[in-house]
Design a protein around this nucleic acid. Structure first.
Lengths: 217, 217
DNA sequence: ATTACTAACTTTCGAGTAT
DNA sequence: TATACTCGAAAGTTAGTAA
């Protein structure tokens, strides 16, 4: 179990703000975590190796700064906690830009076609709409309405895929769709969406159009 | 290093909302954490033993609910992350009710008198105003402007105390003060405040009056 | 006063397995 | 299928120190 995130969180509790250049000794940090100076020192080195913080060491103490990666990791925690604790207020909406993708969508949809049809209850248009969220969003696996198990076909293996029921909308229209979440890769930068029809044509969507995905709970 | 909070956070990522009665097997939870089914099972038992969740076990899977304690632990994380990531917006303000305390304040202030005077730059009124926050607030240790080391006097030992510069205010007045943070005890339910004068008299404060503490950064 | 190495100690993990 | 036990192995922790 990776404790990087926890260590980073504990470190953030010692810092006044995200832009605070702050100085802490390993023994002081150790007191905050109730561990020895040696362990605290190692933990700080691990955070640095993971790219979460940058430190400049000197004879007495070290000056620590959060990196962008560290801040984004803490921001993910914040987003996930919000989604969990403040959920009931409004359904989760993700703003995204239409993107081109690698054109592999069609190939995959064909491979998964029968299983998708069985799972979703309809035969999806054989292609995916790729969407690039405009800002960080919380983990949506938890809203998955089902999962297609991995399988092997023609000596090629296809991984498991979860699917989340969502509404894709723009100012003037709304369509039902499913977000596909490959279970292999973490930290997806583009979401792939399938629907009954070819939405690019039906709704005249072009690359870089901004649309909203609203997760159906 | 205690990982309860991290495990709870990871569990929350699997749940749809805080009120979700949700069912997960130990092997599924293990996959989320990248640990074995055995470890996941043990972690869930630890969370239950710590009072963070309640589970009902059956032949297949277990139904998990977050307890109030678990929710408040996650809420603490949320508050701390907010304070860290969204800091610049406005200074941290804590709304609190005036409380009676155990009357020990005066005794302590006397014991710490000389050290407090040296640290704060003035001789505080020999008593503390006890304040009970009306809602959870983020950790404020990080804003400490200094610390008085522990010491022993007349065979009695006095622990270390950090102090945070703050403004105590009501609708019609504002006073400089210091929040005292004993370093021994965690999870303080009442904050103790010292000031130059006896604020109860000067500002006619009574128990249950609502005041605001604003941390000076 | 620092940080951080090595070596010994302690805790945690997970394969095998019982229930 | 589950959960969860034992126990040998792996990982983490810290005391003693070096730098």
């Amino acid at each position: 179990m990776d404790r990087t995130a926890l260590t980073l969180y504990e470190l953030s509790k010692c810092m006044k703000s995200k832009s605070d250049d702050f100085s802490i000794s390993s023994s002081e940090f150790g007191k905050c975590l109730s561990v020895s100076q040696q362990t605290a020192s190692r933990l700080l080195n691990e955070l640095e190796a993971a790219g979460m913080i940058s430190c400049t060491r000197g004879g007495k103490g070290q000056v620590i700064n959060m990196t962008e990666k560290g801040l984004s990791s803490l921001n993910d925690m914040l987003l996930n906690l919000r989604a969990f604790l403040e959920c009931a207020k409004e359904p989760l909406a993700i703003e995204a830009k239409v993107a081109t993708g690698f054109g592999e969508g069609a190939y995959y949809i064909q491979a998964y076609a029968k299983k998708l049809e069985a799972a979703l209850g309809f035969a999806p248009y054989p292609g995916t709409l790729n969407l690039k969220p405009t800002k960080p969003y919380p983990a949506i696996d938890r809203f998955a309405s089902g999962e297609i198990a991995g399988f092997t076909e023609n000596n090629r293996s296809f991984g498991a895929v979860k699917y989340v029921l969502a509404k894709l909308s723009s100012k003037s229209w709304e369509e039902d769709c499913f977000i596909l979440l490959p279970q292999r890769t973490h930290h997806v930068v583009e979401l792939e969406v399938v629907a009954r029809e070819k939405l690019r044509d039906k709704r005249s969507i072009k690359d870089d159009d901004v649309v909203t995905l609203t997760i159906c709970v």
